[in-house]
Write a protein that binds this DNA or RNA. Structure first.
Lengths: 218, 218
DNA sequence: CGAGCGTTTGAACAGCGTCAAAACAAGTGG
DNA sequence: CCACTTGTTTTGACGCTGTTCAAACGCTCG
């Protein structure tokens, strides 16, 4: 999907400056998506780089037979959809109603070619992505449900810089991210709550009570 | 470990030109390692980039409690140990007796700064790494043992451009790579052999008989 | 108030891990 | 050449853990 085709969306702020990385701001559009709406699809040409302004986004790989892997969740401030090649290797969907900024990839490439510091910022962005995926491999390879959920909640809490975390995604989304079923995610979170490691004021709100226990589990 | 410290190793070919990427050759050393010898450790400063000349290498992440994740296997021609940051995020060990070439990272950085094409080659190297790790996340997230082992063997066969594959690594290594126990790896390979998908002339030699069945399993 | 979705909980099953032992391969020294 | 050692692979039996199937519950929003 390109901006030209997306006549269904309201371009809320055309031409605004988007901060892709520290010290790298470029003009971009801004689109609104409702929950579960696709932002881009696997295999589409990667003409844009995206940044979450409000809401939340998931990037998914389809595996057929209804199985899917959620590569990651993106919260306000996160950049996603940055590809090295010509096409997107995953699809992206809004989890909740979200505003997303778009920056032309060609503009990014030009900035990187012109400015060595901009190129270094892009490199740093990509390498952080790589580190995050490698951590995820460790999690999926040899960890039990408590460790997976515990680590996931810790990461969210650290990201939010707060002990209370608002979960924009469903249990099923978390399961597809952590390689578990939604039932196991639910049971594990209940168990962590029973053990006082977390509190669950509501299904989508988590308060981290004993981060040491969560880290030990992770 | 730096080259200066490694007096135990014979520098077999000092000053030889090493092809790090297509069209990017730089002077480098060449060291010999015996089986299970450490090439570099997690957390050490990443002063070199490495390339397998002969033998095979594994890169591992330690998880404590005897658990480890093998991030990948590297065969002759493969480059490994390329980091964005100052330190290695994984350790590397020779699986069998191996010759490994070393190129100074500072030389690589200079080449990238000087030559735009060299920088692009490095970027391509890193992005292929990222794609490979993302594929691995899919494998670990939602696949059963037959799919994991089948996909693993297919990748090796494709890499070797041959239906018969020589496995330099043990069942345990494969298990730590695929998130399985060594027993499950052994059982799965035996089962694939029983189903005529592969043949096992010996434990370390695999002949792919029915790649379609392996791909379906994968 | 009711409909629909997400979450929780239960019960039964199956698959993979764990533990243990045997088979096998390869090297070492007598 | 054989006995012995060491490490890897294979096979078996068992138990646990997470999945599957199913039903009840509780929000949230018409």
């Amino acid at each position: 999907m390109t901006v030209e085709q997306s006549n269904v969306h309201s371009i809320t702020a055309p031409g605004k400056l988007i901060t892709v990385a520290p010290g790298l701001a470029l003009p971009g559009y801004s689109l609104s998506f409702e929950a579960n709406e696709e932002i881009f699809g696997e295999g589409e040409s990667a003409n844009f780089v995206y940044k979450v302004l409000t809401g939340a986004v998931r990037t998914t790989h389809s595996l057929g037979e209804g199985r899917r892997q959620i590569g990651g969740f993106h919260l306000p401030g996160d950049v996603f959809g940055l590809e090295w090649g010509a096409t997107h290797r995953c699809s992206a969907e809004a989890i909740a109603a979200s505003e997303v900024a778009l920056v032309r990839r060609s503009a990014l490439d030009r900035a990187a070619a012109r400015d060595g510091d901009a190129a270094r910022q892009l490199w740093s962005l990509a390498s952080r992505e790589l580190a995050s995926v490698q951590d995820h491999v460790q999690l999926l390879g040899h960890k039990n449900p408590a460790e997976r959920v515990g680590g996931f909640l810790l990461k969210l809490s650290k990201r939010a810089a707060s002990a209370t975390v608002e979960l924009p995604m469903s249990r099923g989304d978390i399961g597809d991210h952590l390689g578990l079923t939604l039932e196991t995610v639910s049971r594990t979170m209940r168990q962590l709550a029973r053990e006082q490691a977390i509190a669950l004021p509501s299904a989508r709100r988590v308060v981290l009570r004993d981060t040491a226990a969560l880290a030990a589990a992770a």
